[in-house]
Design a protein around this nucleic acid. Structure first.
Lengths: 229, 229
DNA sequence: GTCTATACCACGATAGAC
DNA sequence: GTCTATCGTGGTATAGAC
């Protein structure tokens, strides 16, 4: 980059440019499918800059997730804190805990311009990534928020056996991840109206109704038998 | 391959060996991450054999999905036919339609040995693949079964507005796909007992309970307002 | 401390002789 | 259906300019 341009550049701008380009390209072409050469060209930085600032491609991938996911999960936890505080000694309603959990994701999908929506899609795909290190990373990054929410749901749904709850949280997680990630598959497979796909308010209502009912569902079949035993 | 071995090989065995190896490796390393060299080595066939039998890597990918997904969806439709026949003029119970839909997938995850479980995981990832052609292909392959089930659910849930149903089917799809695909993320994130992950009977009960409740959930918030209007 | 140019080495795809 | 040579591309490392 020439000195005239450099003078205009805030410190660490290069890092940010790389992260932004990486986010967009990882979504478009996947991790394996995105070459450092394409990435650095898109970011308008030198090929060696990635290695200099992040150390390796894998480390870059991690940085991409950390940049958004850490604040996002912190926000999720804060949301739950606020909710429990306002409920006082009473347990909050299940639907409100669900909303608290969804909120951070839904806020992000409304932000198409600065890449939030793109990131959410990338994130949704990460749970099923071929690369084990990536899945491990995601698990780690989510762990604190998940622990916190698991405890909250245990309080809110005291009737539900623990292992049943774990599965239902998994289902909830899956519904959310998939809904946000498989955005074009909706209308490919089921034929929904495209304009509704990113309406956060509508999505919140739809998801909350669905998930609340699912979490509160009565036990049936072998699960009910198990519990009775 | 030498002539002595060749004589032992049934016709088209090479095709099958390639498909089997591809299925396993695509799951492990993704499509981009799987090289033809590794693939053909694993299959014990010549490097050029893929191009000879399938024409290209993309065509191989399509063949991998078609081989299992076409019969699977045919089975799904047959299951629904049987159900509706046995119900006669009455509409079947929602839970039974859900079960009919789940059955084909659940049968497959029990089959770890001949690769069914692996394929189901691969399939679950395909909805969120970077490659648009792959997502399009999956949409196409699912279309007939989806149409059929959408119609069935419309009959079974006449109260539910169409566009709401479309979303709930999307949620249902997501729950299933993710649950089966993100098999290790379950215990990474939520900490479930590993031995329960592939118990098809348990999974069927758990999924059916969750999904039935979700599909039958009352409308709320803006959706309810919309309907009233 | 930050950025650039360039070199290195491994690997994957492809095509043409057999 | 097979073998092999070739070429492009991948991620990474380094040396030196600012």
């Amino acid at each position: 980059m020439n000195p005239a341009l450099r003078a205009l550049k805030p410190p660490h701008e290069t890092r940010t440019r790389i992260l932004d380009a990486a986010e967009a390209l990882f979504m478009q072409h996947g991790f394996e499918g995105t070459s450092m050469r394409l990435l650095t060209a898109q970011a308008g930085v030198n090929l060696a800059a990635v290695n200099y600032h992040f150390g390796s491609k894998d480390a870059l991938i991690e940085a991409v997730f950390r940049r958004r996911l850490d604040p996002m999960n912190a926000e999720r936890i804060a949301e739950l804190d606020r909710l429990e505080k306002s409920a006082g000694a009473m347990a909050p309603a299940p639907a409100d805990v669900i909303r608290a959990f969804l909120r951070a994701s839904l806020l992000m999908i409304e932000d198409a311009k600065s890449g939030g929506r793109n990131f959410i899609r990338l994130l949704g795909r990460a749970y099923t990534e071929p690369s084990k290190p990536v899945r491990l990373l995601i698990g780690q990054l989510y762990a604190p928020a998940m622990e916190r929410y698991k405890a909250a749901f245990e309080r809110v749904l005291p009737e539900l056996p623990r292992d049943e709850l774990v599965w239902r949280l998994h289902f909830m997680f899956g519904t959310l991840a998939y809904t946000l990630a498989a955005t074009d598959t909706v209308h490919l497979i089921a034929g929904c109206k495209p304009e509704d796909r990113y309406d956060a308010k509508l999505l919140e209502e739809r998801l909350t109704a669905f998930l609340e009912a699912g979490l509160l569902a009565p036990l049936r079949g072998v699960c009910a038998v198990r519990k009775a035993a």
